[in-house]
């Protein structure tokens, strides 16, 4: 088979290169703030890559992915807090668990809890279609949001601070460039997995479900199971991003669960280009550029973000990747 590189792939490759080069430049200029900013881009992008699996490939317009982002964040926060205070988290069969500061365990826990939440939310939401699905995913996320505010054990409205960054092997995770490296590795891994999924048998069924559920069912593949699986995997990626986000800020609050967060994750996906592998990464980068650079000039940067988003939706439906690389092609 001939190896051909199309424009989207060229764009993706140069984009990966930038993700390596920019922090290196910031490091050499001794500007840790920019590294932290890049880390934020990478983490938010991961949340977007997660949503893109459900939304872009599966056509599932989830307006409640903040739920998974926040759940991941709280999983990290709660485990770390218990570990630090040496407080009992739970005991079962005589085994007592006091939390952990091991990132691997935290990531696993975040994805596990995110998956459980996604199974429940997805099971109910996927029974409905179209506009109902949008609103129900939103409502479920709100439910968790209000629960987090009302439940005082983990800080309620004030949120929960994580006083030290969690550990991974013997790395100095407090060093911005090390933490960036961890996050970038995970982002590339998640993106690679989503790309593999897209081209797999499962991906074929999922993308078919987006275009024509009736057809998929009539050849004997149940759309519900395919969509629920995609929804759960999507939520796991977003929950992992949430855990990293909590670690980055060393703080979790109900804000991570709010519907504005859902809207923002969706914006990353759309600004970049729906269903594009690297769309969310580009979208998240754009968003941070808006927030920090425009935010430095005017506090009303949200106004310009709104105008940009409106312009993309009305006039450039493929997002930025779409404008640069042209239409999506299936073989």
């Amino acid at each position: 088979m001939m190896l051909s590189v199309n424009r989207e792939q060229k764009l993706n490759i140069s984009f990966i290169a930038l993700l390596f080069i920019l922090p290196a430049v910031a490091l050499s200029m001794d500007e840790p703030f920019y590294i932290t900013l890049m880390t934020k881009v990478v983490i938010l992008a991961m949340a977007g890559v997660g949503l893109n699996l459900a939304l872009g490939l599966g056509g599932l317009i989830s307006f409640g992915h903040a739920a998974f982002f926040g759940i991941g964040g709280y999983a990290a926060g709660i485990l770390a807090t218990h570990y630090m205070n040496d407080e009992l988290l739970f005991s079962a069969f005589g085994y007592e668990y006091f939390g952990t500061d091991n990132m691997l365990a935290i990531w696993f826990a975040a994805m596990f809890v995110g998956a459980i939440a996604a199974i429940i939310i997805g099971y109910f939401s996927l029974r409905t279609k179209g506009v109902y699905f949008i609103m129900i995913t939103l409502a479920f996320a709100q439910m968790i949001y209000y629960f987090a505010i009302a439940w005082p054990t983990y800080g309620g409205e004030d949120g929960l601070s994580i006083y030290v960054r969690n550990n991974l092997f013997d790395l100095n995770t407090l060093d911005p460039i090390i933490f960036y490296g961890i996050c970038l590795s995970l982002l590339l891994l998640v993106t690679f997995l989503v790309s593999t999924l897209r081209n797999s048998h499962f991906g074929s069924a999922l993308q078919a479900a987006r275009q024509n559920e009736q057809r998929l069912a009539s050849v004997g593949i149940r759309p519900f199971g395919i969509q629920l699986t995609a929804f759960v995997i999507s939520a796991m990626a977003t929950a992992l991003a949430g855990a990293l986000f909590a670690d980055l800020n060393r703080f979790v609050s109900p804000d991570m669960l709010s519907w504005h967060t859902s809207g923002e994750i969706m914006i990353f996906v759309i600004l970049g280009g729906v269903g594009r592998l690297f769309g969310p990464i580009l979208g998240a980068a754009m968003f941070i550029v808006f927030e920090y650079y425009l935010g430095g000039i005017t506090e009303h940067w949200g106004l310009f973000l709104g105008i940009a988003l409106l312009a993309v939706v009305l006039f450039a439906r493929g997002g930025i990747v779409g404008v640069i690389a042209g239409e999506v092609k299936h073989d």
Binding site: T196, S200, H201, F202, S204, A205, G220
Partner: peptide, 16 residues
């Protein structure tokens, strides 16, 4: 897609 249904391979995640 129809062949895939008969194969029962819709939950294969990694094979291209």
């Amino acid at each position: 897609l129809a062949v895939q249904s008969v194969q029962g391979s819709s939950y294969r995640f990694f094979q291209a």
